[in-house]
Design a protein around this nucleic acid. Structure first.
Length: 572
RNA sequence: GCGUCUGUAGCUCAGUUGGAGAGAGCACUGGUUUCCUAAACCAGGGGGCGGAGGUUCAAAUCCUCCCAGACGUGCCA
C-alpha cells in the first residue's frame, strides 16, 4: 500500500515540530500544501503563522525554531523559512522519483478515511413521461462522477435514480391519454407523445377547469389501486425508463437502483404516524405541517395536504427511513439544482428531529438555462439530451474524419463517441458546480483548449510513443529509474504526486472540477515537456526514464478522466 | 417584504475553504511541423477581483452597508 504523500509529509513534519515544541497538540492546524510557486520549493506550510497566537511569538521565530530541529531524511532534503513565516519544504528527488514510480504499481492507501458503510447517492432522477433534456445533464454527470470518486477512495456506493414516478401529473396524463392519444405517434415515440399529452392537458385545463377535477379523480383511483389506472401508470413508467436507459448507456452511466418515489409509497403512512406521535408535525389550516425553530431560518414544511395526500417531503422522509433500514448508511448525498436547497434543509432537519442522526449532504448545482430563460418541458423550449449527444457525436466524427481519414469507419465512429461524450461531460464537470450555466452549443462542442479532447490527446500521445518505440524495435525497460533532471520533468513528478490528495479534496467538497482543473494543469505541463524535450531519440537511460514518466502521466490522466466518467482512446 | 446564492480580463470561467507577484481557456497579434499525433507548443497585449467601510501579520476569500442579477418563500417536484 502506498501512503499518500501529504500524510507522509505531515507525519514527518510533526516529528520535527515535536522536537521544538514537545507540548504542542493542535495538530488540526497543520496543513501541508503544494507550493504556490516552484521557486518556493515543493510543498509549503503556514503552520507557524497559523499558530503564532498559540505560541505567542512571531511566525518567523516559530518557523526558525522548527527548522533548527530539522535533520535531513530520506523524504525531505531541506526546509526553509520564507516570507512572513512560511515553511518551504524541498522534497528529496530520489524519494519523489521512486514514489511516482510506485504510483501505478501499488494500491493507494486511503484506509484513514471514514470508509465504513455505504455512500448513497441520489442523482439524475428524471420525471417519468417527460423526455430527458439538457436540464438533466448536470445532476446526471455530477452524481456519476461523485460515485466514481468515492469508489476510487474505497467507499462502497449505491447509485440511486430517484425517479419522479408518482404524483399529480399522472392523473392529468391518464385523462389526456384517454382523450387525445395519437396511437401512431405513441408507437413511434411514446415518451414524446406522453409529453405532448401533458402539455396539451395543461393548455386545455386553463380553458376548462373540469379537467383538473377529472385528473384528481383519476389520481385518486390510481392511488387506491384501480387496476386500469395502475396498468396505464406502469406502462408510462416502462416506456420512459426504456428510453432513459438508452441515454444512460450512451453516456456510460450506471445506477444500482431505480427506486422511484412510488417505491416508498407504503412507508408514507408510517412517516405521518411518526411525525404525529413525536409531536413534530401539527395540524394547521387542515394540513399537517412541521414548523422549525426561528434560528433555523426555514419556512414551515407541509407533509400532508388538506385532502390527506402526501407530498415530495413525505416521500423523501420515507426514502430516508427505507435507506436507514436497508443499508449501513455512511452518508446520503443528493445531487439536485440549487432551487431545492431549502427543501433539503427542511427534510434533513425533520429527519434529525425524528432521531435519524445521519450524514445528509445536499450537493446543489447552478441551474442550466437557455439564453431566454429556464428550460421547461411545459414551455417547450428544451434541448433534448438525444439531440445534444447526436450533435456532439457528429462534430467529433467530422474532426476524426479530418485528422485520421485512413482509419476504418467503425473505429472512427468509436473514437468520435468517446470524444463527443467526453466533451459534453467535461464542459459541465470542468466547471465549479455552483456556477449557473447558460447553455451554449459552441462551448459544449469545443474540442480545443481546456476540454476533454485536450486531455484525451495527451493520453493518445503517450500511447503513440510506445507504438512508435515498438515499430522501431526500441528495447525499452519500464523498470528503469525516473530521472528528474529537467525542471519540467520535476514539475510533472510533483504534480503526479498530488493526485491522491486532489481526489480526496474533490470528494470532500463534492466537486469534480477539482479533478478536472488538476488534470488540465498536468496535461499542460506534459505538453510543454513533450514539445521541448525529445524522448525516443535520447540515450537509453534518459529515454526509458522519460517513457516511464510519460506512462505515469497517461495513467493519471486515464484514471482522473475515469473519475469524471470519461474514457480515453488510443488514437484520435 | 424576508431568505439563499452570485458578481474576478472583450467572452466563458478557475482560484486548494484566510496566505507568498491575481490565473486559465476562447478571441486577438506574432512565431513553431526535414523531429515521438499541430485536437499541440512558445511569446505578447489586456483585469486588481461590483462599490464603500471594517477585522487580520495577511482578504478575491471573513464581517457590515450599498448596487446589480438569479433563485426560493404553506398544500409542485
Amino acid at each position: 500500500m502506498l501512503e499518500i504523500l501529504e500524510n507522509k509529509l505531515k507525519n514527518n513534519f510533526k516529528k520535527i515540530v515535536k522536537k521544538a515544541y514537545p507540548d504542542f497538540d493542535k495538530w488540526e492546524t497543520l496543513n501541508i500544501e503544494p507550493a504556490t510557486d516552484f521557486k518556493f520549493g515543493d510543498f509549503q506550510t503556514n503552520f507557524a503563522m497559523k499558530n503564532s497566537n498559540y505560541f505567542r511569538d512571531n511566525p518567523r521565530n516559530i518557523a526558525t525554531n522548527i527548522i533548527n530541529k530539522f535533520k535531513k531524511s530520506d523524504l525531505i532534503e531541506n526546509i526553509e523559512v520564507a516570507g512572513p513565516g512560511f515553511i518551504n519544504i524541498f522534497i528529496k528527488t530520489e524519494f519523489l522519483s521512486s514514489y511516482i514510480a510506485n504510483l501505478e504499481r501499488e494500491k493507494l492507501d486511503f484506509s484513514f478515511l471514514d470508509q465504513k458503510g455505504s455512500v448513497i447517492i441520489d442523482y439524475s432522477s428524471p420525471n417519468i413521461a417527460k423526455r430527458m433534456h439538457v436540464g438533466h445533464l448536470r445532476s446526471t454527470v455530477i452524481g456519476d462522477s461523485i460515485k466514481r470518486i468515492y469508489n476510487f477512495l474505497g467507499f462502497h456506493t449505491v447509485a440511486d435514480n430517484h425517479l419522479g414516478d408518482w404524483g399529480t401529473h399522472f392523473g392529468k396524463l391518464i385523462v389526456a391519454y384517454r382523450k387525445w392519444l395519437d396511437k401512431e405517434n405513441y408507437r413511434k415515440n411514446p415518451v414524446r407523445e406522453l409529453e405532448r399529452l401533458y402539455v396539451k392537458f395543461n393548455r386545455e385545463a386553463e380553458k376548462n377547469k373540469e379537467l383538473n377535477n377529472d385528473a384528481r379523480k383519476e389520481l385518486n383511483k390510481l392511488q387506491e389501486g384501480n387496476k386500469k389506472n395502475k396498468n396505464l401508470w406502469k406502462e408510462f413508467v416502462e416506456v420512459s425508463l426504456g428510453e432513459y436507459k438508452k441515454m444512460y448507456k450512451k453516456l456510460n452511466i450506471e445506477f444500482d437502483t431505480y427506486h422511484g418515489e412510488s417505491y416508498y409509497h407504503d412507508i408514507m403512512d408510517d412517516i405521518i404516524t411518526i411525525l404525529k406521535e413525536k409531536n413534530i408535525a401539527e395540524k394547521d389550516d387542515g394540513a399537517l405541517v412541521v414548523f422549525f425553530n426561528e434560528d433555523k431560518n426555514l419556512h414551515p414544511c407541509i407533509v400532508m395536504k388538506k385532502d390527506g395526500s402526501y407530498l415530495y417531503a413525505t416521500s423523501e422522509l420515507a426514502t430516508i427511513k427505507y435507506r436507514i433500514k436497508n443499508y449501513d448508511v455512511n452518508r446520503m448525498v443528493y445531487v439536485t439544482d440549487e432551487r431545492q436547497k431549502d427543501h433539503f434543509k427542511q427534510i434533513f432537519e425533520i429527519a434529525r428531529k425524528i432521531g435519524w442522526d445521519k450524514k445528509y449532504i445536499h450537493v446543489p448545482f447552478g441551474l442550466m438555462s437557455s439564453k431566454d430563460g429556464v428550460f421547461s418541458s411545459r414551455e417547450g423550449n428544451i434541448i433534448l439530451m438525444k439531440d445534444l449527444i447526436n450533435k456532439a457525436l457528429e462534430k467529433a466524427k467530422e474532426v476524426v474524419e479530418e485528422k485520421n481519414p485512413e482509419l476504418p469507419e467503425s473505429e472512427k465512429r468509436k473514437i468520435a463517441e468517446t470524444i463527443g461524450i467526453g466533451a459534453i461531460k467535461y464542459s459541465d464537470l470542468g466547471q465549479n458546480r455552483k456556477s449557473e450555466i447558460t447553455f451554449n452549443w459552441d462551448k459544449m462542442l469545443q474540442f480545443e483548449g481546456n476540454t476533454s479532447p485536450y486531455l484525451q490527446y495527451v493520453y493518445v500521445r503517450v500511447q503513440s510513443l510506445f507504438k512508435k518505440a515498438k515499430q522501431e524495435d526500441i528495447n525499452y525497460s519500464l523498470d528503469s529509474k525516473i530521472y528528474l533532471n529537467n525542471p519540467t520533468e520535476k514539475q510533472i513528478a510533483i504534480k503526479l504526486s498530488h493526485f491522491p490528495k486532489i481526489v480526496i479534496n474533490a470528494a470532500k467538497y463534492y466537486k469534480p472540477n477539482i479533478i478536472a482543473d488538476y488534470l488540465f494543469d498536468l496535461a499542460q505541463t506534459y505538453n510543454t515537456f513533450y514539445n521541448s524535450l525529445s524522448i525516443l531519440r535520447e540515450d537509453r537511460e534518459i529515454r526509458d526514464s522519460r517513457l516511464l514518466l510519460s506512462k505515469k502521466v497517461a495513467y493519471i490522466i486515464k484514471t482522473g478522466l475515469n473519475l469524471l466518467g470519461i474514457n480515453v482512446v488510443d488514437k484520435m
